[in-house]
Amino acid sequence: CHSECLGNCSQPDDPTKCVACRNFYLDGRCVETCPPPYYHFQDWRCVNFSFCQDLHHKCKNSRRQGCHQYVIHNNKCIPECPSGYTMNSSNLLCTPCLGPCPKVCHLLEGEKTIDSVTSAQELRGCTVINGSLIINIRGGNNLAAELEANLGLIEEISGYLKIRRSYALVSLSFFRKLRLIRGETLEIGNYSFYALDNQNLRQLWDWSKHNLTITQGKLFFHYNPKLCLSEIHKMEEVSGTKGRQERNDIALKTNGDQASCENELLKFSYIRTSFDKILLRWEPYWPPDFRDLLGFMLFYKEAPYQNVTEFDGQDACGSNSWTVVDIDPPLRSNDPKSQNHPGWLMRGLKPWTQYAIFVKTLVTFSDERRTYGAKSDIIYVQTDATNPSVPLDPISVSNSSSQIILKWKPPSDPNGNITHYLVFWERQAEDSELFELDYCLKGLKLPSRTWSPPFESEDSQKHNQSEYEDSAGECCSCPKTDSQILKELEESSFRKTFEDYLHNVVFVPRKT
């Protein structure tokens, strides 16, 4: 048989008469490798580009789960590009990614509803959504962080984005990388972005840091009482949809009607710091009717980097990364020049730590249904340095008659930039024990000054392991946590139920 035959053949030295091919099969003959313009397919066939392209389009058009959109890589027609490569849609070739590779997620039936953290986790790592997304989240724990972890990498949506009755959302900033909504599939009414009845939605994105392009379709905003109209108009300008909307697409009466839409800028007039305090004062603000001013709200939190936005980490279910302080308005003076500047002394802060701070007014709604208010920009203030805590785990070892090696770990709280350490030492008198000992005694162990690591005695271990207080009263049991108490109650309830079950099964009433 021919060298490319495997198993047997019907005619000697003829690659077209093989029972099976050793390498690849091409047009009725066995070959060692697939010549151009053919590609290896499933490690035994040679196919042309049209064959591989037909497989790709067949799966793409069917949208069946589990099928493969075949691509070409290293002269092979394979189910998908290997790690580190992405497909070129024009020629199906796998090309190296520039940075992290995109991950295209194809949605069944063309859309997916995100109504819980669990459903959001199914899209973790996706960068391109081939379909439409509907966000409908009523509640949950730590929602802002969970949504950002699972949806934060999405850069492109081919269909539309719909935010509907998501009472738990305060902001859409968890879509931190969303840059493009194509609108290839539109919501009824030709809408590519749809926001309806979101009672706590206050911000779409921080438009000073976020760009969003909507290729096709219109915007729809109705019944978002805490979303200011200025935020919607800003989205029109940034996304390129200005002029597409009709009169009733953006409701003037049901958007922002319960919001404090600040239209003035508060400026800080005085800032002073110490290692654990920050004193702030800002310019006074009074609405047209000074009785509408209820006070100020001061927001602050630790910020290692200057990239904080107002609604980071917030949701309507209680999660809030900001510390909020309510401040009463100052006494009002008739003389504008003698107006008191409101302020606040922030206490209990960490030394040498940068804080993000902003302040906003708290006002009631005027009778004319106009909203007044003022808010400052987010500023960054760093507390002063102070003395560091003591170095940890000092170790001293003498390696000769004239040297001592000293080692330690950095302090747990540096409280500033540590530039150097101060080492103090003092000579001590020799131990009298060394002169009084009889060095001729056998088995004498000389006193040693070398360091030995501390260890816990058996008594201390027994005390720590004991669940009861000892007789001397030195140790006591740790208080039980809520989960331990709940577990004990469940076990007790189970024992009672099981005992009742045994009584009912074992003891049967005697027939009379």
Rank of each mutant, 00 (worst) to 15 (best):
L298D: 00
P391V: 03
F220W: 04
N141A: 08
L161G: 00
D289W: 14
E236V: 13
L196F: 06
K112T: 15
C261F: 03
I214D: 00
I154F: 01
E156I: 08
V359H: 01
K407M: 15
I134A: 08
V104Y: 10
R202G: 03
F275L: 09
I232V: 04
G110T: 09
W207D: 11
G131V: 01
H233S: 09
R247A: 09
V325G: 03
A120C: 14
E156L: 09
S338H: 06
L204T: 10
L280K: 00
L153N: 10
K226Y: 04
K226W: 13
L201Y: 00
W352V: 14
G217Q: 05
K277A: 13
S401Q: 10
F268K: 00
L153Q: 12
S208H: 06
R244A: 04
S400L: 06
K162Q: 15
V308N: 04
T113H: 15
H210R: 15
T254H: 12
I157S: 00
A195K: 00
Y194P: 01
S166N: 04
D315M: 14
E146D: 05
I129M: 06
L108I: 09
P351N: 05
N136A: 03
T371N: 07
S401N: 15
Q216H: 10
N340M: 02
W282M: 10
N255M: 11
V359K: 01
P284F: 15
G183I: 02
I214H: 02
R124F: 11
Q203Y: 14
I137F: 04
A259V: 11
E302K: 10
F358Q: 14
L153I: 14
V381L: 15
L212W: 01
D315T: 04
L151Q: 00
T215L: 04
N248L: 09
P304A: 14
C261S: 03
W282T: 06
L298I: 05
Y300D: 00
V170M: 04
S401H: 11
V324K: 02
K337L: 06
V359I: 15
C228N: 08
L108A: 13
T213C: 07
L172V: 09
M346S: 05
V170A: 09
F296K: 00
Y191R: 06
R164P: 07
V381S: 04
K242C: 08
D335E: 14
S398N: 11
N320H: 10
A149I: 06
G295P: 07
T361Y: 15
N399V: 09
S401G: 13
S396Y: 01
F193L: 11
T364Q: 01
R281W: 01
E283F: 09
I114Q: 00
N141Q: 06
F174I: 15
D377G: 12
K360H: 01
D115R: 05
T241Y: 08
E187R: 11
C317Y: 11
L392R: 12
N307Y: 02
L201G: 00
I134H: 08
R179M: 10
G159V: 03
E368M: 10
P388T: 01
P304E: 14
Q339W: 06
G139N: 11
D335K: 08
A195P: 00
E368N: 10
Y300W: 08
A120V: 04
T323D: 03
Y194H: 11
C261N: 03
K218C: 01
L331R: 06
C126R: 00
S319I: 07
V324A: 15
G295Q: 15
P284R: 09
T241I: 08
D312P: 15
A303W: 05
L298K: 00
L293V: 07
I214A: 08
T383E: 00
H106N: 00
K209V: 11
E283L: 09
G373H: 07
L266H: 01
H222A: 09
L147S: 02
S338W: 14
S239L: 12
E155S: 05
L280S: 04
Q245H: 05
L180V: 11
L252N: 09
D315G: 04
E236C: 14
C126L: 00
N190G: 14
F193K: 00
K226L: 06
L178V: 05
V381E: 12
A149L: 09
S333M: 13
N141F: 06
T361V: 14
N130L: 13
T213V: 14
P388L: 02
K103M: 06
Q339D: 03
C317T: 02
A251M: 04
L178E: 00
V117Y: 03
L169F: 13
T241V: 08
R124S: 10
D328S: 05
E302F: 14
V238E: 06
I405A: 08
A303E: 03
K301E: 05
R202Y: 15
F174M: 06
D328E: 14
S269V: 03
I154V: 09
I134G: 07
S319D: 10
L201T: 03
S119R: 04
D328K: 12
W286S: 06
P225E: 14
N200A: 03
K226V: 13
E148I: 14
K277T: 06
A385W: 10
D206T: 03
R182Q: 03
Q203L: 05
A195I: 10
K409T: 02
L331K: 12
E122A: 15
K407V: 11
V117F: 12
S376D: 00
L108G: 07
S173Y: 10
I188R: 14
N399S: 12
R291V: 14
R281M: 08
P284K: 15
G295H: 07
